[in-house]
C-alpha cells in the first residue's frame, strides 16, 4: 500500500473552479454562466451535478466509511490477525480502515454533501448471531506495530489502544466501531482516527473514539454522523462489543 503511487492533494478547501486528479479519479468544478458544474469521474463512473451558487467553498474530505453503496449499517468492523494480550496490559497497534471521500459545498455555516465515492470496494458482514447480531461494514487489515503510510485516498489509519482489564490472557482479532463519534483527521499524507478498546471479558469490550489527531496539525473532517452531547456531559459515544472479540 505504501509504495508505487504519487501523492496528490485530494483533500482540502477549494474555490469554485478547480480540478483534482489522482490515478483514476478526477474531480472538477467549472463555471457555466450563472451555474456551477460538478463533474466526478472515478474509474469510468461519472457523476455530474448542476449547482446554483455564486460563491462559496468546496470541501473535499474523508468521511465515515459507512455510506456506500448504501447506508446499510452504522457499524464498522475491522478484522485483523489474532493478537494475544497479557493480563492487565495496554498495547497500541495500528490498523487501516477504508476511505470514503465526500464533497461538500459550504456557504456561511450551511454545508451540503453532494457526492460520496470510494476507491475501495465495499463489503458487509455480520457481527453476532443471525437473529440478534448487527450488520457491519467489513474491512480486513494487517496489524501494524508502527504507524503505516497507506495511500490516503484509499485507506486511513486507526491508532488503536487495546486495554486488557481482565486478569486473564485475551485474544482479539476484531474491533467494531459505531458511526457516532468517529473523529476523522486528515492532511495530504494521512487520514487517521484515534480509538480505544477496553476489554472486560473474553466476550465483552467497549470501543470508543478519541477526538484527537494522531499527528498534530491535521485537519478535522466534517462528520456525516454526529451525536448530540448533553450539556455538562463530556462523554464520547461508545459501543459495547458483546458478541465476542474473535
Amino acid at each position: 500500500m505504501a509504495g508505487g503511487y504519487q501523492i496528490t492533494p485530494v483533500y482540502g478547501k477549494f474555490g469554485y473552479e478547480f480540478c483534482v486528479e489522482k490515478d483514476d479519479l478526477k474531480v472538477c468544478f467549472s463555471k457555466d454562466d450563472d451555474f456551477l458544474r460538478y463533474h466526478r469521474n472515478l474509474g469510468g463512473t461519472v457523476v455530474e451535478r448542476i449547482i446554483a451558487s455564486e460563491s462559496g467553498t468546496v470541501i473535499i474530505n474523508p468521511v465515515e466509511p459507512l455510506n456506500l453503496p448504501d447506508e446499510v449499517t452504522r457499524f464498522l468492523e475491522i478484522r485483523f490477525e489474532p493478537i494475544e494480550i497479557e493480563p492487565e496490559a495496554t498495547r497500541r497497534i495500528y490498523v487501516t480502515f477504508p476511505i470514503e471521500i465526500a464533497v461538500f459545498l459550504m456557504k456561511n455555516d450551511a454545508y451540503r454533501c453532494i457526492d460520496i465515492f470510494s476507491r475501495v470496494p465495499p463489503k458487509y458482514s455480520l457481527y453476532g448471531p443471525t437473529d440478534t447480531g448487527v450488520i457491519t461494514r467489513y474491512h480486513w487489515s494487517e496489524v501494524f506495530l508502527r504507524r503505516p503510510e497507506p495511500d490516503p485516498s484509499l485507506y486511513g489509519v486507526v491508532e488503536l489502544d487495546l486495554m486488557n482489564s481482565t486478569k486473564n490472557w485475551v485474544e482479539v482479532s476484531r474491533v467494531v466501531f459505531e458511526n457516532f463519534g468517529m473523529k476523522i483527521y486528515y492532511d495530504n499524507d494521512l487520514v487517521s482516527m484515534s480509538a480505544g478498546m477496553k476489554i472486560y471479558t473474553q466476550k465483552l469490550a467497549y470501543t470508543a473514539f478519541e477526538d484527537k489527531p494522531i499527528i498534530s496539525g491535521m485537519q478535522k473532517s466534517i462528520e456525516l454522523y454526529y451525536s448530540r452531547k448533553l450539556a455538562g456531559v463530556d462523554k464520547l459515544a461508545y459501543y459495547a462489543m458483546d458478541e465476542g472479540l474473535v
Binding site: 465495499p122 458487509y124 458482514s125 455480520l126 450488520i135
Partner: peptide, 10 residues
Amino acid sequence: EKEPYALKSP
C-alpha cells in the same frame, strides 16, 4: 466475494 451484500460472515 465481489458482491458487497453477500456477507463475509456467516
